[in-house]
């Protein structure tokens, strides 16, 4: 009896659980999510910390070592310029992950803002933004990317900066999905009684938008942002594969694939294209799993 009362007292004293905390608790209870998160952490560490442990980090291009198969010295062999593939993979990972992350940042900022504003204000603001989104949706992605790539090459944009532009472009052509999602969410939230109550308190628009609407929308932004990272990594790979993304010597996983894009490498030197392919696959799959797990964690109907 005393034990029961005591535990009740403790339950009452426990600090209030914010919706974020309970979502997090649901998330870490999902074994798939933990596996994917571990996988992703390993990849991030591999890309960002790995290079410090590579004996080849200061190595110059040595053509006489070119195209060696995997061995004790070069675990995944060397490429056509004699560079260690493991090290290339790490450096490429940095670029690919960064592009994925930054492009997603652009998507969240653009799509989130546009969705929030057009859902909240409605009327002609809404019409203009949403028709613009429709137009962007209607243009096929690849032709636009190829056009952009061609323009960039023509403009002689400095190759080392090109990576930032790639992030921006990926962001600019993929914000529409998120903005529609956010807009529809805002539209349904606006009909909730608590928004009428906020209105009756005479709060200014800024507070209604950022204090009342945004926190309710952040879960879907996190979920769709996570999935967006995967999409951006894939898009960057596609771009680089087409020679429109990052430019050698800057490596990215897609760019490594593209470098191995010939019959000889394809049939004789699988160590050049299998590893980056596998890295893209693992990264994208783990991010997608995490995104799904987050969606489940944030969904109040999943509450157990």
């Amino acid at each position: 009896m005393t034990i029961a009362t005591e535990s009740k007292v403790r339950a009452v004293k426990r600090k209030a659980d914010s919706p974020w905390k309970s979502a997090w608790r649901r998330f870490i209870r999902n074994p798939m999510a933990i596996a994917a998160l571990t996988m992703l952490t390993v990849i991030v560490l591999f890309s960002f910390v790995g290079p410090f442990f590579s004996p080849y980090k200061d190595a110059r291009i040595t053509v006489k070592n070119a195209n060696q198969p995997p061995s004790a010295e070069h675990w995944l062999g060397t490429d056509n310029l004699g560079r260690d593939v493991v090290l290339r993979l790490m450096q490429a990972g940095q670029i690919s992950l960064l592009v994925g992350l930054m492009a997603t940042g652009v998507i969240l900022l653009l799509g989130g803002t546009i969705g929030l504003v057009s859902g909240f204000y409605g009327g002609w603001v809404d019409s203009i933004f949403m028709r613009f989104a429709d137009i962007m949706f209607a243009i096929p992605t690849l032709p636009i990317l190829i056009t952009f790539g061609a323009i960039l090459s023509d403009l002689k944009f400095p190759p080392d900066r090109r990576i930032y532009l790639v992030m921006l472009i990926i962001g600019l052509i993929s914000w529409m999905g998120l903005s529609r999602l956010v807009r529809s969410q805002v539209l349904s939230l606006k009909e909730q009684e608590f928004m009428l109550a906020a209105e009756a308190l005479g709060l200014r628009d800024r507070r209604k938008l950022f204090a009342h609407l945004l926190p309710n929308i952040i879960p879907i932004m996190i979920v769709s942002g996570t999935l967006g990272v995967a999409g951006a990594i894939l898009l960057e790979s596609a771009l680089s594969f087409l020679g429109l993304g990052v430019i050698p010597p800057t490596p990215s996983w897609g760019q490594m694939l593209s470098a191995a894009n010939n019959m000889v490498d394809f049939s004789k030197r699988p160590w050049l294209w299998i590893p980056p392919g596998v890295m893209i696959l693992i990264t994208v799959v783990s991010i997608n799993v995490i995104g799904d797990a987050l969606r489940d964690a944030f969904d109040p109907k999943m509450k157990r």
């Binding site: 209030a16 914010s18 919706p19 909730q192 009684e193 608590f194 009428l196 109550a197 906020a198 308190l201 005479g202 709060l203 200014r204 507070r207 204090a211 009342h212 926190p215 309710n216």
Partner: peptide
């Protein structure tokens, strides 16, 4: 349904005070 589910009740009482 008249209270915002993602804000603490304190935050919701404080809002009009800070506003007005």
């Amino acid at each position: 349904t008249s209270l915002n589910p993602v804000l603490t009740v304190g935050e919701q009482i404080m809002e009009p005070l800070m506003e007005h």
